[in-house]
Amino acid sequence: MPRKRHHGWWIAATALVVVSCAVSQQHDGATTPSDSSRTPAGQHRTTSQPRQHVAKEHVTGHLARHPSQRITSRGDRATTSAKPTERSQPVRSTTRRRILTALSHTRVLASRPFPGGYDRDCGPSHGCVFGPAWTDDTTAPDGHNGCDTRNDVLREQLRHPVVEPGTHDCKVIGGTFDDPYTGRTFDFAVHHQTIQIDHLVPLAYAWDMGASRWSQVRREQFANDTRVELLASWGPANESKGDSGPGDWLPINTTFRCTYLARYLHAIDVYGLAMTRADASSIRYTARGC
């Protein structure tokens, strides 16, 4: 009798193991073929790859639509991958807010009009529509201070400016110039001939976008406004800009682009100028990285 009781226990245990194995095999048989048919082997580690791929396509699409801003986008990508400091983030957010707020107040035109009549030459039989270059005889902030506009800008923007004796602290002959458009530093005494004064909003662009309807006094004020419209820059960078808006030209110094756009829009806003739809789109796109 004990042996029969032991044999019965053994049969029951064996049956339990067999049932468990069958259940396990049934579960495995239902799962494995289904998983392998959906996901090829070796891809369980890369479930996040489709998101990364989509993000890369998204950025590449913007670069294709805005080829002039390729450096900006790469710079933004590098910046966002690093952990922002508590000090830098509020500044970037404030700049972006300034740009977008000013942009929302700006009149946008479908395309750039060409009203005609633009003539900066002040010689005989010419229009001189923005007055003589760097004249002190204007209603601009530094007007009538006894110094021409170019030297007003240089004194304010150079580090440790040196002025020529006997010029009433006017003519700048030395100092350190940090070019905002390229990020390079120049000795002004050596490179003074290549340092130019840029109109943030090019005068030809301003003429087309509203200045042609201004009075002569207001145009001369705009052309010599050291607080709003003027910025010393390296000559080749300034010349490459020409009369382009932000849709066609931005500084190669990516760290200055957001400041450039904020100042550009401030000049547009102060003087009530319009801008093209392409320029507005470019500004809005670039502002994402500000």
Results as ranks from 00 to 15, higher is better:
P2G: 08
K4R: 06
I11M: 14
L16D: 10
V19R: 08
V19G: 11
S24K: 03
Q25V: 02
Q25S: 07
Q26K: 09
D28N: 03
A30D: 03
S34C: 02
R38Q: 09
R38M: 07
R38Y: 10
T39W: 02
Q43P: 01
Q43I: 07
H44I: 05
H44L: 11
T46P: 06
T47Y: 14
R51V: 06
V54K: 01
A55M: 05
A55E: 08
H58S: 05
R65W: 05
H66Q: 10
H66T: 09
P67D: 08
Q69A: 11
Q69F: 08
G75T: 02
R77P: 02
R77W: 06
A78W: 02
T80K: 07
T80Q: 13
A82S: 15
K83D: 15
K83E: 15
T85Q: 14
P90E: 13
V91W: 08
T95S: 13
R96G: 00
R98K: 11
R98S: 07
L100F: 08
V108Y: 12
L109F: 09
R112N: 09
P113D: 13
P115S: 14
P124F: 09
P124V: 10
S125I: 01
G127N: 12
V129A: 01
F130S: 06
P132H: 03
W134A: 06
W134R: 12
W134S: 04
H144D: 08
H144G: 02
N145S: 03
G146L: 04
D152H: 05
L154G: 05
R155G: 05
Q157T: 04
L158F: 13
P161T: 07
H168M: 07
D169M: 00
C170F: 01
C170P: 00
V172L: 12
I173K: 00
G174A: 15
G174W: 15
G175L: 12
T176D: 05
D178A: 04
D179M: 04
Y181W: 10
T185F: 07
F186K: 05
A189N: 00
V190L: 15
V190A: 00
H191P: 01
H191F: 12
H191E: 10
H192T: 01
Q193N: 06
T194L: 14
I197L: 11
H199Q: 08
L200F: 05
L203K: 14
Y205Q: 12
A206L: 09
D208N: 15
M209I: 04
S215R: 11
Q216S: 15
R218Q: 15
R218P: 01
E220L: 15
F222H: 13
N224T: 12
E229Y: 06
E229R: 10
L231G: 04
W234G: 06
A237I: 09
A237H: 09
N238S: 06
N238A: 13
E239Q: 14
S240G: 15
D243W: 06
D243Q: 09
G245Y: 07
G247Y: 00
W249E: 03
R257E: 08
T259A: 12
T259M: 08
H266S: 12
A267E: 13
V270E: 15
V270G: 14
G272P: 10
G272L: 11
M275T: 10
M275G: 04
T276H: 14
Y285D: 09
T286Q: 03
R288F: 11
C290M: 02
